[in-house]
């Protein structure tokens, strides 16, 4: 069974239709890159999967582990295992990162009927992952995303993903605005998360990040629809020829 399946999905913002019949399927363990020109609906697709309230679904369905999630709130989707790494993570002044992550982790555990993590267990869980991604103790104390550089914000998104251990990871332009060193940290952080039961949907414009986490499939999106799905060679085709001949 597919981990996540998108069937003929149509979504609007106000009167404007942005997704015009998207069909996609993610098998467990699969890394699937989505590429497409600016404004084709990639970010909308990721927001709709995560349950953003600004979009109305007018047709179609999203099945996660075989069940429709369209009527579920973003928190239920998250606790079931969907994680969205934002292209532009919002700042949360006054909300300390570590405290927030502990609340989030325990929200998920209580949703899954697991015991709450105490302070010591949580610190162990956190420090291990923080170290791997170069998150300093100082960053953990700071408010979420406040005053962080673009690269630090992306590293924090990867870190939160590693903390919450989701089954389905959506990365919305994780590699935009990263320098080569930051890209390496994020790329390596992602590649160690690759597991047989965890799937990735990677929205990107370049093959930089994909060098670290090789996709099994690549889909090209244009004007709210998936126009082609293929192997990794599609990435090189896009890099060489642009999107014009994908229709």
């Amino acid at each position: 069974m597919a981990l996540l399946e998108i069937k003929d999905l149509h979504a609007c913002v106000g009167e404007k239709e942005i997704l015009k019949g998207v069909n996609l399927c993610f098998e467990p363990g699969e890394v699937h890159a989505i590429m497409g020109p600016n404004g084709c609906g990639k970010s909308t697709l990721s927001a709709v999967i995560a349950g953003h309230p600004s979009f109305q679904i007018t047709q179609g369905d999203i099945l996660f582990k075989g069940q429709s999630i369209l009527n579920q709130t973003p928190d239920v989707r998250a606790n079931k295992g969907i994680f969205l790494a934002f292209q532009h993570p919002v700042e949360l002044p006054g909300v300390g990162l570590a405290q927030f992550l502990k609340t989030a982790l325990n929200a998920k555990r209580s949703f899954l009927g697991q015991a709450q993590m105490d302070g010591v267990q949580f610190m162990k869980h956190m420090n291990l992952r923080a170290k791997a991604l170069g998150i300093t103790p100082d960053m953990l104390k700071r408010p979420v995303n406040v005053g962080f550089s673009g690269g630090e914000k992306k590293r924090l998104e990867t870190f939160q993903m590693a903390m919450l251990e989701p089954d389905f990871c959506i990365l919305d332009e994780m590699d935009s605005g990263l320098d080569v060193d930051a890209l390496k940290v994020v790329g390596q952080g992602l590649s160690v998360m690759r597991e047989p039961n965890r799937s990735f949907m990677i929205i990107t414009h370049h093959d930089d990040l994909l060098q670290y986490i090789q996709p099994d499939k690549v889909s090209i999106m244009r004007d709210g629809q998936i126009v082609t799905t293929g192997g990794v060679d599609l990435v090189h085709q896009v890099e060489e020829q642009g999107y014009d001949h994908f229709r």
Partner: peptide
């Protein structure tokens, strides 16, 4: 929305 995508109601 950001907080909800992290699993908070």
């Amino acid at each position: 929305f950001y907080l909800q995508t992290r699993g908070l109601t």
